[in-house]
């Protein structure tokens, strides 16, 4: 079971890294494969779309900036989404407990595993904070679109950055006190 999970995770990670260099139809196929894999793992297309919504919003903002500078393209957003879906699948299926035991400290592999674990944890923290902030906004803004909605969205994003910073600070402090990080 552990071997199969590791194989899937390594394949997904490999595809995520490859997506950074792919172009045209190859990138499109990788993205579709990533979307399908994420949907299979998360239990449905709707769940994948919901999970991708904050990233899609951010990518939309980047696309607007690109459009303003006259260099709009479809590959950057698609690449980012492909990497997100494939990395999410890889992080979800990796047998972390076995990896931590296999990678004995203070080996470089242990540091890599720890780095990936911290990354995974922080992605989950960010996901939770995004949900909370969007829920809080939904409760205090009468209309999702229209008057006041853009301003409230901007403040929600600001709040998200502040919360993420505080959580990162506390998390680092906790790991430092536990002797896990230098």
């Amino acid at each position: 079971m552990g071997t199969a999970r590791t194989f899937v995770a390594v394949a997904a990670l490999g595809a995520a890294v490859a997506a950074l260099w792919l172009h045209g139809p190859a990138l499109l196929i990788t993205a579709v494969a990533g979307f399908a894999a994420h949907s299979l793992r998360s239990g449905g297309v709707r769940r994948t779309l919901r999970d991708s919504f904050p990233l899609a919003m951010f990518l939309g903002f980047i696309a607007v900036l690109q459009l303003a500078s006259g260099s709009a393209g479809w590959e950057l957003p698609l690449r980012a989404l492909a990497v997100f879906w494939l990395a999410a699948v890889a992080f979800g299926v990796l047998p972390w407990n076995q990896l931590v035991v296999l990678a004995r400290p203070p080996s470089p592999f242990f540091s890599v595993v720890l780095f990936l674990l911290f990354l995974r944890h922080f992605a989950l923290v960010l996901r939770d904070e995004v949900r909370r902030v969007l829920q809080a906004r939904r409760l205090c803004v009468r209309y999702r679109f229209g008057a006041g909605s853009f301003r409230s969205l901007v403040w929600a994003v600001v709040a998200l950055f502040r919360r993420a910073l505080v959580r990162a600070e506390r998390f680092y402090a906790a790991q430092w006190l536990g002797g896990i990080v230098p």
Binding site: N97, F171, I180
Partner: peptide, 15 residues
């Protein structure tokens, strides 16, 4: 932050 509680408590000891 580990995927299991046992993992959370194992890590500092391995360290």
């Amino acid at each position: 932050f580990m995927p299991t509680l046992a993992g959370d408590l194992t890590l500092p000891q391995l360290n």
